[in-house]
Amino acid sequence: MKAPGGIGGGREAPSIGLKFLLLAAISLGFMVIDHRNDHLSQVRQVFSIAVYPIEIAVNLPFKTWRWATISLAERATLLRENSELKNLQLRYDVRLQRMAAIEAENVRLRAMLDSSAQIDDRVLVAEILAVDLDPYRQRFSINRGLQDEVYVGQALLDANGVVGQIVGVEVFTSEAVLISDPDHAVPVSVNRNGLRTIAVGTGDSGSLRLPYLTNSADIETGDLLVSSGLGGVFPSGYPVGRVIEVERRPGQSFADVIVKPASELDRDREVLLVWSEEDPDKQYDETKLVETDP
């Protein structure tokens, strides 16, 4: 209303109704395409670069706070922490020495059994951006993206176990889904007896469910579940959670098993991105080799 008449007059030329219909159609088209398949990831990437400054702005106070708490911490606290870490390091070193021997033995045994040995996975530390995604879904973004060769379907771990996997990759950031998302499932096996099943998210970051175990399945409270490596997304052998409740219902054919995730899904600040041996590019190369060979 304050703008000079010239500008107002110039803008009125296309009718509002027509413009509205056009833009509404575009946004509806976006939704349909985005929902049906993944053709929009390029568009999303462009938009994500545009909104990256906002993500930075949101994250900045939290980052500054963390930096301040570290750099303003008392010398005594730091010294104590340092010595604690050194102790821990020593303990781990000792354990690692034993590990090396066990690993070598494992490779030998596997060679005798003629099965493939597990190689060390390549990892990269990623920071969780303090950005709230949709509160009704268990998702978050991390500060690694295309430029770090992150790919869709990549597994995320933390110090305690499996955290989730990547569902969308943008240039500087990626979106990940927690294993506790109701739409997410992890193939697991019971560490005690090798029983394989699937752990499904509940929407609550403190619990998972095992819906596909029969009443007679050999599972007990306290059983450790590790990723089984089936499905090719999660590398095998990482802890997923511990069974905290088994309810066998006589009227039903399936037991109700609740699992507490091993990693602290709602408290993590840093996660590890894992490039497992079965990374998709490699697989692709191998299939190409097989095809071109004969």
Binding site: L23, A24, I26, S27, L28, G29, F30, M31, D34, H35, L40, V43, R44, F47, S48, A50, V51, I54, E55, V131, D132, L133, D134, R137, R139, S141, G168, E175
Partner: peptide
């Protein structure tokens, strides 16, 4: 921008 930031379906908030 809201859609991209919040990870919603692209176009949902725009519409």
């Amino acid at each position: 921008a809201v859609d991209t930031l919040s990870g919603a379906l692209l176009g949902q908030n725009a519409f």
